[in-house]
Design a protein around this nucleic acid. Structure first.
Lengths: 336, 336
DNA sequence: CTGTTAGCGCCTTCAT
DNA sequence: ATGAAGGCGCTAACAG
């Protein structure tokens, strides 16, 4: 067994009591400079490192918050993390990120249910409503970024997907498109459903019939977007524009179109959703809907601190999206 | 103050002792199914959530490891994280990621020095050697991914930057290039220095004189690459190829060349380093040197577990890079 | 200014 | 099968 050196050891070597050692180490209380020196000296000599767990346990406070993501390695969260990080740090708190991969045994669950942090921000579709609500408790604020939950201690920060998709589709229509395909995400995704809704709303508003033959499922992945696009092409009747429910699927679309010698935006226009970093580097640069991820991050973190502070806050916040016009959408051929 | 419900409360409500409650909750020991029921029932009724900190303190073991990154929001770590995550999970451990932004007060320091995790993997240039070595202690393995440290408990997993840069430069030379510029990273970066070394080695091997007029500093950022490229162009004498010490700077280079109407690869060839995700989507796709980040991640995590297990392991591992040939390098004009 | 002491919440031997 | 009790390492009254 490995012998840990504790504050007790330090105290003994310094010839003082534990409390004095604690005071000296933490720079609190009134410790004679001389004794303080002795303690610090002893600590160094023993290579003493405090046990943060014991401290947190004693204080019933961790001063850290957890950001729970469905997949730590996704490039998608960059802006969100930055937003959260900035305000967390500004408040003197620590931030840790963990993943919800692994279901019941995931690290996420551990931090959600074992009082290891003072609050959490969740953007993880693979954690069920039930699990989140079961973790809700007094003094443990939870911010969710992808759904609304009817619970006292859970606050939602949402981006208005329906509005964003509406906006995007409307833009396509105003460019002259009438035949617009929609590649959706997984059918159980609230985000995907809402984007579809916005798409349909715009269609309806312009008296364009919704056609199910132009709706495919792409599962929010690049692969999925690729296959959906292939299907769309093989079907024979090509639309003049396709709206991918996220940028990753649009990436797959780019590839499929290129393989078939279909030029963007000359032969077909494409619209994405999310504005991931890569979007601007594509050829042509992808026109898409930007989600205010950074703002969502800062807002979420702010709300957490207000909750710590027992301030009165709303339980739901809606953020709006922005259309980012780049080069992947053009007027359809027949209008030129 | 908020009243936490503890195992004591559960025990009381269930009419059993604390130890029995603990056994029942953890499914250990021999508890009569009936009493177990009672305990579980009481726990649910009180919405009991165990305190993981207390447990870890008691067990002197956290079963979690920390991945310390210089910037959580960087898109750069994706593959690395995936590698670490997979083996961590496979071993039944938890993984948390934290950032070293903030120096002394960063979350990274907290996890490095306060016994909150059982081991750490570090890829964070902004943490000094001294800090890392000061955290070294018995039973606390540390894996560093960007330097070699002379310390009993610190293991290095490195990628061979010199070899990678050598390989890249050699390829350029073999394509017929003789005038090859090099855009370096920050001068204090070991990675950058080694890449420069590889570049010079290849030059030397082919009897090409190293010219300082073709070396600029780009600081490893896109902006830096952009400015360095502008400087290179303004200088009047254009090389036939430029080797950026990382892909991000190459991104800036693409922009600068485009602004000046210089075509890649027709007018100039460009080589990157890292193979970040965006590289393949650029126009033309970037030829670059791929770092085995995923492999580094899995290896690092494996080593951690071997260290937990007190197995004999080396203190240093070197991984090699791969040249990824895409479309940004061509034979120079004068050879066509 | 310094020492004594009582927990923070949990697990786990040791009795019973 | 269950209960009593010690302690993980630390902080913060409280008492000198």
């Amino acid at each position: 067994m490995i012998e840990m050196t504790t504050i007790k050891d330090v105290a003994k070597l310094a010839g003082v009591s534990v409390s004095t050692a604690s005071y000296a180490l933490n720079g609190k209380g009134n410790v004679k400079p001389e004794t303080k020196m002795k303690v610090l000296e002893a600590a160094k000599q023993l290579n003493y490192q405090k046990n943060g767990l014991a401290m947190d346990l004693k204080k019933s406070k961790t001063k850290t918050i957890a950001l729970i993501l469905s997949d730590l390695s996704g490039p998608y969260y960059s802006e969100l993390i930055k937003g959260v990080q900035e305000v967390t740090m500004a408040n003197g708190y620590d931030l840790i990120a963990c993943s919800s991969i692994g279901g019941k045994d995931s690290t996420a669950i551990k931090f959600l249910t074992e009082k290891r942090v003072d609050g959490v921000i969740i953007l993880a579709h693979n954690i069920s409503d039930e699990v989140i609500m079961a973790s809700s408790r007094d003094g443990f604020p939870i911010i969710v970024l992808d759904r609304f939950l009817e619970d006292q201690h859970i606050i939602s920060v949402l981006v208005n997907n329906t509005q964003g998709a509406y906006q995007a589709t409307k833009y396509l229509i105003e460019q002259g498109h009438r035949d617009i395909a929609f590649i959706s995400g997984p059918s159980n995704s609230v985000d995907s459903i809402n984007r579809m809704k916005g798409y349909q709303q715009a269609l309806e508003e312009y008296d364009i019939a919704y056609q199910s033959k132009w709706t495919f499922t792409g599962n929010f992945t690049r692969e999925g977007g690729y296959h959906a696009t292939k299907l769309l092409i093989m079907q024979g009747d090509l639309p003049t524009a396709v709206f991918y429910a996220n940028d990753e699927m649009a990436l797959g679309g780019y590839q499929a179109f290129e393989e078939m010698g279909i030029k963007i935006p000359d032969d077909i226009s494409v619209m994405g959703f999310d504005d991931i970093q890569i979007a601007q580097y594509l050829n042509p640069p992808l026109t898409t809907v930007k989600q205010p991820k950074y703002e969502a991050g800062t807002l979420a973190a702010h709300l957490l601190f207000q909750a710590f502070d027992n301030q009165e806050i709303n339980r739901r916040y809606d953020l709006s999206t922005d259309l980012v016009i780049r080069g992947s959408v053009a007027k359809p051929q027949n209008l030129i």
